[in-house]
Each structure stands twice: as structure tokens, then as C-alpha cells.
């Protein structure tokens, strides 16, 4: 199959970028989307041109590195899927495909389709951890956690930190990302010690980094490759209320 690609090219953080047209010939429907870009890049390198920069790592949908907005939807048209798990059979022969980076003030473009997501690291560093001293490796079942709570925490912990939620949100909000971590730790016994300070500090850090707020549209949930629901965001509201008004 043949595709007309419009790919965002930007030389560096400060440069002005633009969409550049590329023709992708002889694309196999069995290729993954990233393989298709690899093939284009091989051609560009052979021609002595600058390869298109994009992030990827595991290519099996679990690392959260790949980050492309394809035809206006982060991670492309498939639900609950990262770009690396998107395949070319999902596209029609002759289709025009626009590829852009995540767009947010807090995620500055490094080059082409690569953005700097260290703002997420700063949010986690602000409170997304458990720092109680537990001594040596504890026995696996020393702290009982009910099946229901374990499942609930795991659903939130499934976040791979890719940032698609921010990319999809009209406000470039990080609320789904941070609420998933806040929710996960708020239901587990290990997370109780820092429960109050965590929610306040993480929200403050996200605000300081220039992410927007939340309009409850749920675009984030719809593009999340791990299908993390916005019920986490409601829980974050409750945790915040508890922290600042109940003071505990």
C-alpha cells in the first residue's frame, strides 16, 4: 500500500517546525506504524537526509515511550493501544496520515516528534512514591491487602506515563496521569503515611509545570492505552478535599 504522510519536522526546541510531506511506498499492511517510520528513515539516511526523530523503546505496548498524534488522535485510531501496537492494516491505501508530537507547554518539543516529558518525572518526584522505612525486604503477605483493593490499585497503577492524556486534553492537563498515581497509593496501606502531602504536592507541581486543569470531558480516558478511567480524577478531588479541609 501507499500512504501520503504529513510529518512534523522541527530542528530543535527553539526552531519553528512545519509539516513536511513524505510518500510512503510499498508499505506492508503487516508493518507496525513505527516499522513504517523506520523504513522511511532508512531511505532518508541513504539519501543523506536527516532521519525523522521519534521516541520508542519496548515496541510491545508497555513502556510508554512512543508518543505520536496520528490524524488528530494520540496513539492513533485504536482504543487501548500504543502507537507501536498500531498496524498499517488499520489504514487505507492512498490515505493521508498526519503525524504530530504531543503538544503541551509542559512537554516542549526536543526534535521532530520527540518531546521532553520530564515534567511527569517532576510530578512523581513531588509525591508519587512511598518513602517509609521498611527495613529489609518484607514478607510478601506481611501487610494484608484485600483482593478488591489490590485490583483497584492495580487498575490505576497500569499507567505507563506516556502522556497521551495530556496530548488529548484540550487543556493539556495532567490530571489523569497524576490522579492515577494518587489513587493507587491512596487505597493501599503503604501509601497512607504520605497520603495528605502527596496529593497537595503533586497537584502543585503539575500546576507549576504549566499543565492545564480538567474540564471533565474524558478525552484522556478515551486515548489512554491502558484505559485508565476518569474516576481516578474524581478520587483525586476527594483526596485533595480531604487533605486541605480535613487536614489529615
Amino acid at each position: 500500500m501507499r500512504l501520503n504522510l504529513k510529518i512534523w519536522r522541527q530542528a530543535g526546541p527553539d526552531g519553528a517546525g512545519k509539516l513536511v510531506d513524505y510518500a510512503a511506498d510499498h508499505v506492508s499492511p503487516d508493518m507496525s506504524f513505527l516499522e513504517m517510520l523506520d523504513v522511511i528513515n532508512e531511505r532518508l539516511v541513504k539519501q543523506g537526509e536527516d532521519a525523522i526523530s521519534f521516541d520508542s523503546d519496548c515496541r510491545e505496548g508497555i513502556c510508554g515511550m512512543c508518543s505520536l498524534v496520528i490524524n488528530g488522535v494520540p496513539h492513533g485510531p485504536d482504543r487501548g493501544t500504543t502507537v507501536c501496537q498500531l498496524h498499517m492494516r488499520r489504514f487505507k491505501d492512498g490515505e493521508t496520515v498526519t503525524i504530530e508530537p504531543w503538544r503541551a507547554r509542559a512537554f516542549p518539543v526536543v526534535k521532530d516528534l520527540v518531546v521532553d516529558r520530564s515534567a511527569f518525572d517532576r510530578i512523581i518526584a513531588a509525591g508519587g512514591y512511598v518513602s517509609i522505612n521498611v527495613g529489609g525486604a518484607p514478607d510478601g503477605n506481611a501487610i494484608p491487602v484485600s483482593k478488591q483493593v489490590a485490583e483497584q490499585a492495580m487498575d490505576s497503577a497500569a499507567c505507563i506515563g506516556c502522556g497521551a492524556c495530556v496530548a488529548a486534553c484540550k487543556n493539556a492537563s495532567a490530571h489523569l496521569f497524576m490522579s492515577a498515581k494518587i489513587a493507587q497509593l491512596s487505597v493501599l496501606p503503604q501509601g497512607q503515611v504520605e497520603r495528605t502531602t502527596r496529593v497537595v504536592a503533586m497537584i502543585a507541581q503539575a500546576d507549576a509545570d504549566g499543565f492545564g486543569s480538567c474540564s471533565n470531558e474524558g478525552e484522556c480516558e478515551a486515548v489512554c492505552p491502558k484505559e485508565i478511567p476518569i474516576s481516578n480524577i474524581a478520587r483525586m478531588s476527594r483526596e485533595f478535599t480531604r487533605a486541605v479541609f480535613a487536614g489529615k
Binding site: 488522535v73 504530530e100 503541551a104 507547554r105 487543556n171 493539556a172 492537563s173 492545564g212 471533565n216 478525552e219
Partner: peptide, 21 residues
């Protein structure tokens, strides 16, 4: 919220179900 995305997308589409948009 507007300031949180200074550069707009060239193409942006609603993500569909389960979005409430």
C-alpha cells in the same frame, strides 16, 4: 488552560467513546 497548549495541533479529532466530549 489555553496557555497550557501554546502550539495548536494541525489536525485534532475527538477521541470517541468513552469520552464525554
Amino acid at each position: 488552560n489555553k496557555a497550557a497548549r501554546p502550539v495548536a495541533y494541525a489536525v485534532k479529532k475527538p477521541a470517541g467513546t468513552p469520552s464525554r466530549k
